[in-house]
Computed example of a mutant assay.
Amino acid sequence: MIGIITEFGKRVSTRWVTAILLPGSLWVIVFGIAVVLGHGSPFDLARLVAETEALGDEFVRHPGRAVVAVGLAVAGAGVAGTVATGLGRLAQRWFLRRRFLTGGLITRSRWSRRSRALAAARRAGVDPVAAYLPQRPTWLGDRVRLVEARVRAQYHVDARLVWPRLWLLLDEDTRRPISDAHARYADAVSLMGWGLLYLVPGVVWWPALLISATVVVTAWTRLRVTVAELAELIESAIDLRLRDLAEAIGTPFGGNEVKPVEGRALDDRLGKAGPA
């Protein structure tokens, strides 16, 4: 037991250092540079060096102040990491929201993703499936919704009910790529939070706004890649193991194609609908 606790402590410490302390320390450094230089002289290296040397001399004369400063810097890095994590989660909820703030105004515009999808379908001479057309404010939200729509169309079940139970049936080798993709997604969410947090030093030092923009764009790109990968893996797992779940629950499917009545029976069992 002691060995398990020790190993867990090592992993937590390593995660804290790489995900919180290091990026938080970098943010504290940038914030310090922003306070010293400001908008008036954003690239005055001579002034920055002079201030750094003066601070170093102060710490040599008063070692106690150096200890306090280091402690405050570490605490500031920890607080920054906590705030960045919170901002990342807020951004995630914003990107995955269901409703537009402008109602249907944006969806009706000729530049919306829905309008472009309809135009592409007309050019191809095909009738688009209404459930597969963009319906959420962001691409990320639609990619997540598309998993639910496709699973519902193919198997007549609710993916939100199926997935937690099906996950318990997966072996470790099958879970690993999904867990790895989710970890990369979580890192992208955290990176988005750091990008937003760099807006704070940007208030007094405009180059920080460039840093913020770069980090936010990078995080958005990673979010698109990881969400697409994670959605594809989850949908694939449902394709491969849904029959196993239905059999384990006691509502096995009959033929090669899942009938609507079979899908509804599984939905009722998972949703604890009870007898009709």
Rank of each mutant, 00 (worst) to 15 (best):
I4E: 02
I4F: 03
F8A: 15
F8R: 12
R15P: 14
P23G: 04
S25E: 02
W27H: 05
I29W: 02
F31V: 12
A34M: 06
A34N: 04
V35R: 07
L37F: 00
L37C: 05
G40D: 02
S41N: 12
F43R: 12
L45K: 09
A46Y: 04
L48F: 02
T52E: 03
V60P: 08
P63Y: 01
A69T: 06
V70S: 11
A73N: 01
A75H: 09
T85V: 09
R89F: 13
L90Q: 06
R97A: 11
R99M: 09
T102Q: 12
L105N: 01
S115E: 02
R123P: 05
A124K: 08
G125V: 02
G125L: 03
V129T: 05
A130M: 11
Y132A: 02
L133H: 09
L133V: 05
R136E: 01
W139A: 14
E148G: 14
A149M: 07
V162K: 10
E172L: 12
I178G: 04
S179Y: 09
M192P: 03
L197M: 11
Y198T: 15
V200A: 04
G202C: 04
V203D: 00
V204F: 10
W206F: 13
W206R: 13
A208R: 07
L209G: 13
L210E: 04
L210G: 11
S212N: 06
V215M: 02
T221C: 12
L233D: 11
I234W: 15
L240G: 06
R241M: 08
L242N: 06
A246R: 01
N256T: 14
V258Y: 01
V258I: 15
V258S: 02
E262H: 10
G263A: 10
D268L: 10
D268M: 14
L270G: 03
G271Q: 10
